[in-house]
């Protein structure tokens, strides 16, 4: 039974490795799995992201609820829902 589960896992890993991008991100993370070795011991407080103007706002935006994303999916969704609205 166990062998079967392992084999399934192996196949999964292989199929993942064949997808470009995934393999790459996995490799770099495995190397980096240990968060321990820092190339620098310390740096001045003024150089931290905390002290760098705009670091916070560059990372997050408030909300995107009003942002319309126009892709194939949203177009079809919209068309279908608007159709059912007019039908009623």
């Amino acid at each position: 039974m166990n062998g079967g589960a392992n084999a399934a896992m192996e196949i999964k890993k292989e199929s993942l490795a064949s997808v470009p991008g995934v393999e790459q991100s996995q490799k770099t993370l495995e190397e980096d799995d240990e968060f321990e070795d820092f190339p620098l011991d310390t740096w001045p407080s003024e150089e931290t992201l905390r002290e760098t103007a705009g670091a916070q706002t560059n990372l997050w935006e408030e909300d995107w609820d009003d942002v319309e994303v126009d892709d194939g999916f949203t177009k079809e969704l919209r068309a279908e829902l608007e159709k059912s609205r007019t039908q009623q």
Binding site: L29, D32, P44, E47, L49
Partner: peptide, 20 residues
């Protein structure tokens, strides 16, 4: 953790790991 990192390129990997 991220906010106390500096922008130094030598810390890029650490920052990326935190962001993940």
């Amino acid at each position: 953790a991220l906010m106390d990192c500096s922008r130094d390129p030598r810390l890029t990997k650490k920052r990326q790991r935190i962001v993940i």
